[in-house]
Design a protein around this nucleic acid. Structure first.
Length: 470
RNA sequence: GGCGGAGUAGCCAAGUGGUAAGGCAGGGCUCUGCAAAAGCCCUAUGCGUCGGUUCGAUUCCGACCUCCGCCUCCA
């Protein structure tokens, strides 16, 4: 069976066929963070989802070029910069570093390119000029807007990602008065003229000093790094409209007549999450940054596992109980893998195929992680039975271990702190074992406590004691 | 008001036109000097409600109820 994804463009699950005639190379763009604060668990759900897409593509042998932008100029950022008196670069640099550290905590594979909006003002201006040349942009008081009417008038399609009735668009409170200059409500800013509140945040342009609009950076940077037409574009579901719709209009609208190609072949959108059953909000006290969760004693891999446990298109209820459950579930895998290692010893073998086949089939089906984890836990139970029965050869254990390692290139939840116990710990274990043999149980328990204080848990098995990280 | 998504055991969550994966929690058991460890086993006659199609529906159709998202800068 082929790999398939749900494409927002078609509202259906489609076979994945890369644009590359060789069928190998894949360009993938994911809308990254706006660095105005620490990332929260909802942000990271989307980035973990993007990581899963990328890793599964790589698992399937594709050569992925992964781009994730950093939005480092935008209304909220400008407001914060004004409030703190810092420079834009100092302010955003701090949160960008924090974001990168958080990504490492969650074991996200680093994108090949992480372009910043402020480093691409030139390409952004160039793109706006092309839109002007094509007649889709108009200038009002030093700001440049995209005209949806003119775009549609030229036979182009606005509204590819959703059924859109512009007449029905509610003119809500969020239509600010700084947008009054637009010809039509649905038009959007490509370039915003400098205003006094912007402080030092502005760049020169053919239309005067100002800064880029929100959507334009993604069009400019993605096309620069991946070409005018590429395979995958990912983001949170809230970005479908207007952000991604506008990206399509800007990107396809910039092409000269006669060279029109679809901007992106597959659009994938991740659902939002709820926290403790409610929309995350600071007033409800259910607003968690990744850092908050780490402070509560959870690890990056536990959070990663939990975020990988639900399908990306379903809204997911993130709870602290769920995180605690994630810890137990991972422990079950850790145990099984550790037993496999012991049984395999120095033996190595080709990966066993039965688990890999089921796993691949599950993820190929629009990233059905629930089914994939189901395979993993079925496998764990089966192996535990065979290990208990002493019915697993070292070669078989090695083959299963190799299969797990393949799977973990996608899920990446393996226990990394499962270091081999240092000699002094092993010495204590032996000392305790001697005490047990001598039936000096009080002494054995003292030694067990000492090991525990050192961070190691002893487990007595029929084959002798085992230590693992407490 | 417009568009879209979802309702499966205490919780999370797959799935299928033929009678319900997996995880957590809970219960039982095994191993053990002990176990706080680990493993095994058990746990939905039921899949929001009501109709319809069908030999048969949780799965298809219709209505309804509930929840959620988007509708101009929120992942």
């Amino acid at each position: 069976m082929a790999l398939r994804f749900f494409n927002t463009l078609s509202r259906s699950v489609q076979d994945f066929v890369p644009l590359d005639p060789g069928g190998k190379r894949v360009g993938m763009y994911c809308c990254g963070p706006t660095v105005y604060d620490f990332g929260h668990i909802g942000n990271f759900r989307t980035f973990v989802f993007a990581d899963l897409v990328r890793r599964h593509l790589e698992f399937r042998g594709y050569q992925v070029t992964h781009v994730m932008n950093i939005t480092d100029v935008e209304d909220k950022i400008i407001r914060r910069v004004r409030e703190t008196g810092e420079t834009l670069a100092d302010y955003t640099g701090r949160y960008e570093s924090a974001f990168l550290a958080d990504c490492e905590t969650l074991r996200l594979r680093a994108p090949h390119h992480r372009p910043r909006a402020t480093d691409h003002i030139g390409p952004i201006i160039g793109l706006i000029r092309r839109l002007e040349a094509n007649g889709f942009a108009y200038v009002v008081d030093g700001s440049v807007y995209f005209s949806i009417d003119r775009y549609r008038g030229a036979g182009r399609c606005y509204g590819q990602l959703l059924n859109l009735d512009l007449e029905q668009l509610r003119t809500g409170e969020r239509v600010r008065n700084d947008e009054y200059a637009k010809e039509a409500v649905a038009d959007f800013a490509l370039w915003k003229a400098r205003s006094p509140e912007d402080g030092d945040v502005f760049w020169p342009s053919p239309w005067g000093e100002g800064r880029p609009g929100w959507h334009i950076e993604c069009s400019a940077m993605s096309m620069q790094l991946l070409g005018a037409s590429f395979d995958l574009h990912l983001g949170g579901e809230d970005l479908v409209f207007p952000h991604h719709e506008d990206e399509i209009a800007q990107s396809e609208g910039a092409a000269p007549e006669g060279e029109r190609r679809p901007f992106v072949k597959y659009w994938l959108h991740g659902a939002h999450l709820l926290v403790e059953g409610k929309k995350m909000s600071k007033s409800l006290g259910n607003f968690f940054t990744l850092r908050d969760l780490l402070e509560r004693g959870f690890s990056g891999r536990e959070i990663r596992y939990l975020l990988l446990s639900a399908h990306y298109r379903d809204s997911f209820n993130f709870t602290l109980d769920g995180l605690a459950g994630a810890r137990t579930a991972l422990g079950r895998i850790d145990e099984c893998v550790a037993r496999l290692r012991e049984t395999a010893g120095n033996t190595s073998d080709e990966p066993a195929t039965s688990l890999l086949d089921r796993f691949t089939e599950a993820l190929d089906d629009d990233l059905n992680v629930s089914a994939a984890w189901g395979c993993v836990f079925d496998w764990v139970r089966d192996l535990n039975r065979r290990l208990d029965a002493g019915a697993l050869s070292s070669a078989a254990a090695a083959a299963e271990l190799a299969a797990w390692q393949r799977i973990d290139t996608v899920f990446d939840v393996a226990n990394r702190s499962e270091a081999i116990a240092p000699p002094e710990i092993l010495a204590l274990v032996e000392e305790r074992q001697a005490a047990r043999k001598a039936r000096d149980f009080p002494q054995a328990d003292v030694l067990r406590k000492r090991l525990l204080d050192a961070g190691w848990l002893v487990e007595d098995t029929p084959k002798g004691p085992r230590v693992k990280r407490a």
